[in-house]
Every structure is written in structure tokens, then in C-alpha cells.
Design a protein around this nucleic acid. Structure first.
Lengths: 214, 214
DNA sequence: GAACGGTTTAATCGAGCGATTAAACCGTAT
DNA sequence: ATACGGTTTAATCGCTCGATTAAACCGTTC
């Protein structure tokens, strides 16, 4: 029973949905209050009435997608207890976010924030939870192991996010997705070896004094 | 001795320079014929007279930067004969391209090509030589080693480019560059171990029959 | 049934956009 | 000296942009 009084909620919903879709398919440069409103089947002035502007609407779209993905990823990753399982879980995460367009949403806004200082602060605020998430997950799985000293979870988290952001751009150079699949294949091939590192590297404790004159 | 007749060459030069600068600092959305021309101190109609449009000018700017960087990188990487040296050389490559803004130039255009099919084809054409370059370099250094079977140079090249594109976006989330420095630190810490993989992994030649059911 | 108020609409503003054009500019060749 | 032609300029066109506004809409409340 949709009364007119609270019909704003549905309009906001449609706008957020349309904003996400437009940003994914048209990029930031092709995203405007008019194009979003048209995709939502709604008057463009409502973008400003409900959200105060285009950028706040896009951030709302990112927030919705982010919350949904974060929930899904926490579940995906929760069961992983070895590095091998974690790499496999991460592969599923990348693939899901890539196919669902969440990476595009995220990285388009990161790119857009180049020329918009006020937007950048908002994006950073939304990126930090993801970095923390990766760090905590890594720490849970390899924390305390010798590998964690070679690869500090925080730093690896930075690398993972960097790679994550790059995936979006790379897939656009790769229309038929064969190259992207090669990336997943690479991860799948490396994953089984990953655990070997955690187990065997600490064993190798030779006096490395005479190692190599370079 | 600049005559008016061939003054077009200098104008083209200034436009290319200004186009690169504008794209780096303002992003694609903030780059227009007018903003570029203003930065070049030149009438905006000359963008169309000399280049036929904004996008061709931006591609020309990318080409100039690309050629210069490719030349520099071939030199940087030429001396590397071990995987460790190669990782160190690659670190210098990433750092140089990041600080010089070439990554921004590249990835901004990749991002812009989301909504522009005709631009995307041009970008792909310009990305392939870089993928080939990484692949050939990897093949030269680790080709034939058992590591190359675990990490096929072509696939690793895809991963390197993906990471390369991500670096640009990540640095924009990282105003003070401490996180980015952590990435370089990570590479520096991993590099010395990289060679161990090439040397010691082939030795481990156990009958892998009972390894893992998976 | 009349007033209220959250929502929606159409019209509009000034600005910047890509692109075009006619005219002016000015070395150079005749 | 004069005409040529590559280059540059200012003006202009049609368009889309973000944003605002007054009026209309309509379920709710009294």
C-alpha cells in the first residue's frame, strides 16, 4: 500500500538503483542527474530534492553496493582457515565483484575524485573498511606465522586493494575476458603452493652469511 | 628561427604538453578543448584544427608519454638478469611512472573508454605493447625455469598491468603516500626471496603422486 | 470538505561543452 | 608589390550540464 506521502522512499530506491547502473555502464563522465533520472523513470529535479546533488546520490549508490558486498564477502571468507583456502575465497570475491559491477562503481568514483577534493575524502572514508577487512582476514589466517613477518597483513591489504582497483580498468581492455580469466587461472595455480610457504619457509634456517656476492 | 608557416609544430607541441598536464591534474571529466587550450595559452579552435578533436589530442599525449616511458623502461630493465634484479627494476619503473604521472595518463583514458567504444579500441592498441614488453622481459629472466611453468610470463604480465593500473587509483586514496610507500617496501622485502624460488623449487622433485586429492 | 505538507512536475537560468566558420594574420614564393 | 596558403582568431551554433523555482499533485488529518 504505497501512499503518496511515503512514496519518496521508493523514488530514492529507484534513483539509487539507476545511479549504480548508469555509473557502471556509462562511467562517471556519462553520468548526470538527467541520465540517472531517465534511467529511473523519474523527474531529474528529484535527484536534488532527495539527495541534494549528483555526487551524494552516487555515494549513496556506492554505500548500498558496499554494504551488500561486504556482507557477502565476510561470509565467503569466514570459512577459510588456510592461506590456500583464503586465496580461493579471494578469487571468488574478485570474480563476484567484477561481474556484479561493484568494482566499477568503486573505481569510477575513485577516478572521479581526482579533480574533486571534497569527493575524495568521502571515497577514502569508504575504502578504509575494505582495507581493514582484508588486513583482519589475513591476520586471522597467517597472523603469527613467519610468512606474516615477510608479508605484513596491512601491506598486503594495500596491495590487494590496489590490484582490486586495477581489475576494473584491466577488464575494459579485455573485451572477451580471456585475459581476465588468465588472471583467475594464475591465482588458482598459485593457491596450492601458498600454503607450502607458510609451512616450509620457517624450516629453512641456514646461516645466510655466504649466500651471494651479488 | 620560427616562421609563421611552420609555427604549427610548436603549437601542436604545446597542446600535447598541456593535454597531458590537464588530464593528470583534472581527470578526464575535467579535460576539455577549452581547458587544454587555456593551459597551452592557445586558441581552443586549434585543438580541432591540429588534431581533429579532443580525444585524438589526448591519445597523442598518451603516445608521446608512452614512447618516452617505454624507452626509459627498456633501459632500466635491460640489466636485470635475475628475478630479484627484475623486481627491483620493476619497482623503479612503477615509481617513475607514478611520480611522472604516466600511470594517470594511461588509466584515465582506460577509464574514459568505458563509455566510448571507439576510444577503447585505440587504448587497447596502446596497451598491448606494454603487455608484450612485460611478457618478453619475464621470459628472458625466468623463461625455461620451473617457475615459468607455475607463473606463465604472459599471465604474470596481465597481473602486472592490472596492478599497474590500480596503482594510479590507489595513490589517490592515499594523499600522504605512506600506503604507497608500504607497497614499495613490500616489493623490496619480497624481492630477495624471489630468486630463491627460481633456484630451489626445481630441486624439490619428489614423486608428487600422493600430493593432494583436490 | 478544507487545510496541510511531503512529493512531483515543467520551466527556466547561467555556464561550459564540442565543433564550425569567416575573416584576419603573416611569412613566403612569384 | 602582390598573391598564396598554412595558421590563428573571435564569434557563433546547438547542446547538455547542475541547480533552482513556482506551481501542481494528492494522501492525510482535522
Amino acid at each position: 500500500m504505497t501512499t503518496r506521502r511515503d512514496s519518496g522512499a521508493e523514488t530514492r530506491d529507484r534513483l539509487i538503483e539507476a545511479a549504480a547502473e548508469t555509473l557502471k555502464t556509462q562511467g562517471y563522465a556519462g553520468t548526470s542527474a538527467r541520465t540517472i533520472a531517465k534511467a529511473a523513470g523519474v523527474n531529474s529535479a528529484l535527484v536534488f530534492y532527495h539527495f541534494g546533488g549528483v555526487d551524494p546520490l552516487l555515494l549513496a549508490a556506492l554505500d548500498r553496493s558496499s554494504e551488500e558486498r561486504m556482507r557477502a564477502h565476510r561470509e565467503t571468507v569466514a570459512g577459510a582457515t588456510t592461506l590456500e583456502e583464503l586465496v580461493e575465497a579471494a578469487t571468488r570475491v574478485y570474480r563476484a565483484d567484477m561481474e556484479g559491477g561493484h568494482i566499477t562503481l568503486f573505481s569510477e568514483l575513485v577516478g572521479a575524485s581526482i579533480a574533486r577534493p571534497e569527493l575524495r575524502a568521502e571515497i577514502v572514508k569508504r575504502a578504509d573498511p575494505w582495507i581493514d577487512f582484508v588486513e583482519q582476514t589475513l591476520d586471522r589466517v597467517i597472523g603469527g606465522s613467519p610468512l606474516a613477518r615477510l608479508l605484513p597483513p596491512r601491506d598486503v591489504a594495500y596491495a590487494a586493494i590496489t590490484f582490486y582497483l586495477g581489475v576494473n580498468l584491466f577488464t575494459h581492455l579485455d573485451a572477451d575476458r580471456t585475459r581476465t580469466e588468465a588472471l583467475f587461472g594464475l591465482a588458482a595455480r598459485v593457491a596450492p603452493r601458498a600454503r607450502l610457504l607458510t609451512l616450509r619457509m620457517p624450516r629453512r634456517r641456514r646461516p645466510a652469511s655466504t649466500e651471494s656476492p651479488e
